[in-house]
Design a protein around this nucleic acid. Structure first.
Lengths: 229, 229
DNA sequence: GCGCTATTATTTGTATACAGTTTGTCCCGG
DNA sequence: CCGGGACAAACTGTATACAAATAATAGCGC
């Protein structure tokens, strides 16, 4: 398995660095680069058919985002988050997501509502196909949509990154997400979306809190199921 | 003015990249690299007596953090935040800071309390010397201390970055902070600190909100004073 | 056959080299 | 005197080269 993934070349990006950033990030979040496994710069560069220089710059950013972690002179590794770290991410989200949902109920434009609805559809389609990676991705896009509608890029970006790291955890522990869990999550998304459409900030915030807590409980159940006590 | 700043060499850092990151960030936040002015890679490299490679990697991270912004093939510039952007940062902080203050009241260790108190002393010393850069820095460290005590690195880091960008705005517009403003801010810090010492989460959260709002008002007043209507 | 040591092979971290753009300047024409 | 175009300089974006350090491996002694 010398070239198991093809980091698909260069979504729309001006510089090779950006392209590498997106491609590597995508590969990580799609589970193509397994957590705990080393990332060899030269190999990534070869896959993207570019030199190490822009790859290194992209990796520096991903490291700063907390998706990968370095060991000095030993290489970079896809992060394996501890349960404590994931709890911490959930705690942060429970503070921020209701805030964003509330604001989205105020500020969302019709186009933004459509975009959010599409992420929900995408999530539902993923359930049918049992496509976990795409399910996670649509979930991230849902929250990104809320963030965009909430007109607060700073907090939106935070939630976005948190979601990515949580998803990394899911992938890393290979926990199997069953269809029922995916459906539950989608239902909650749908409810938040409805509250925003109804311009009901209180309901949106309340449902966002509920969603965050539900997710945490579902994850806790999963984490307790397997391996480490 | 070929070498106006000496980016002081290499605080404790393993790699040149880290060193460059900290040095350049420090120079920006100390106002030595003026907002709106271009950052020439080769010049920074020369100042640090290293090559462009690690400098570029450091700059990539700073760009990702929103302290500097690139124009393709034209160079990097220290960010000049718009007023709307600063308002947005304040909005984010008003959501997050009370949350952190509340948690700090629960979890702060005695050592962490001492560390926080020292940042307040540092701030007060800055008033005497009318040292705005150090005043801003001590403010950032105060909030960093709260964040640390709150045991939520994710949100702590967010606040930290927001503070940095706000300070960048202050520097960028060259608004003069007068001694009375500095004292007011210090008083509010002191009050939050006291509430945390008293293990009074509600008071801490309330005072954190008050502080965030006060700062916003003080800044609004400054911003209205000068130049753009 | 097993453990320890020396050597080789990778791989990172850094420096240098090169090509393509963009900006500023100088010169010329009007 | 002013405007436009060619030239030159500077700087970015990318590739390649090199050195240090770590990991893997082979050889040796026992």
């Amino acid at each position: 398995m010398l070239a198991p993934i093809d980091l698909q070349p260069f979504e729309k990006a001006l510089t090779f660095r950006e392209a590498a950033y997106h491609a590597i990030k995508h590969a990580i979040l799609a589970g193509q680069l397994e957590p705990g496994k080393p990332l060899v710069e030269e190999r990534l560069a070869a896959m993207l058919k570019i030199s190490r220089t822009p790859v290194r710059e992209a990796l520096a950013i991903l490291e700063h985002e907390g998706l990968i972690a370095p060991i000095y002179r030993r290489g970079l590794f896809v992060c394996q988050l501890s349960r404590a770290q994931v709890i911490e991410l959930f705690t942060a989200n429970e503070a921020v997501e209701p805030f964003l949902a509330r604001r989205a109920a105020f500020y969302a434009s019709p186009e933004q509502l459509v975009a959010i609805e599409q992420t929900i559809s995408d999530g539902e389609a993923s359930v049918e196909r049992l496509d976990v990676a795409n399910f996670l991705r649509s979930g991230r896009m849902f929250h990104a949509g809320i963030g965009l509608a909430a007109a607060n890029p700073t907090l939106a970006q935070l939630v976005q990154r948190n979601e990515e790291r949580v998803d990394l955890f899911v992938i890393s522990y290979g926990k199997r997400i069953d269809a029922e869990m995916m459906r539950a999550s989608n239902r909650e998304h749908q409810a938040i979306y409805q509250a925003i459409c109804d311009r009901d900030p209180d309901a949106a915030a309340r449902l966002a809190i509920y969603h965050a807590q539900s997710i945490r409980e579902r994850f806790a159940a999963l984490a307790n199921d397997e391996s480490d006590a």
